[in-house]
């Protein structure tokens, strides 16, 4: 475990806690895409199938449980909590994510490390995570401006991906047989998706105006 990876896990955890805090404190989920949250819950559930079969470390096991629990808690809140669900703007959250799920699954069947259930679902979760943010970015563009909490949420998510890429570069140079092509390529695609958001976020910060994403 290197510092980049640990920092990446922490920023990832912070991004999820920011969201939970926002929903819990304001009893509102305005501006948050339920579809993105459902995709993230699916990412964790399909990636951590080895939760009970492979014990890597206490840290890994605890973090996996925290990620699964927190992502399901967010989805449950946005679907079931009487107060929160009222503020969910479903007519804005219209990204057809089922096609994305299907495309990722087909890709995982074709491109995986080993044609076994666990490896196919692992590859599926890697591809799905790269595009899971799309409904949220579409929702941000639809709703015009991004309130600071959702913006910070995407910012921390981007930091998590960026740190993971540095972690892979570090491991590539320090470990002789480290290769993670599937995760690396998919991680690069995912970070690229965030880059345009960061560009607008930086512009709004620099020109000190409310962040307006080009509709």
């Amino acid at each position: 475990m290197n510092i980049f990876r640990f920092a990446g896990d922490m920023t990832h955890l912070i991004s999820i806690l920011i969201l939970l805090l926002k929903i819990y404190a304001t009893k509102s989920c305005a501006g948050i895409s339920l579809k993105t949250q459902e995709l993230y819950a699916l990412v964790f559930l399909t990636r951590y199938l080895d939760l009970f079969t492979d014990y890597v470390s206490l840290y890994n096991t605890v973090m996996k449980i925290v990620f699964i629990a927190s992502s399901l808690a967010i989805v449950w809140c946005m679907r079931r909590h009487p107060l929160v669900r009222r503020s969910y703007d479903k007519d804005l959250d219209t990204f057809r994510h089922q096609y994305v799920v299907l495309a990722c699954f087909v890709l995982a069947l074709l491109l995986n490390e080993k044609f076994t259930i666990q490896e196919v679902f692992w590859a599926f979760s890697i591809y799905l995570e790269a595009v899971a943010i799309l409904p949220q970015l579409v929702l941000l563009q639809r709703s015009g401006n991004v309130d600071n909490l959702t913006g910070q949420y995407v910012l921390f998510l981007g930091a998590y991906r960026g740190l993971y890429i540095i972690n892979w570069i570090y491991r590539y140079f320090t470990e002789d047989h480290f290769t993670r092509w599937i995760a690396c390529v998919s991680g690069l695609v995912q970070t690229g998706l965030y880059a345009d958001f960061f560009y607008y976020y930086y512009l709004s910060w620099k020109t000190n105006t409310k962040l307006k994403l080009p509709a």
Partner: peptide, 10 residues
């Protein structure tokens, strides 16, 4: 199960 590359990252 060494034949499968154990995923040590999250």
């Amino acid at each position: 199960s060494k034949n499968r590359s154990v995923k040590d990252e999250l």
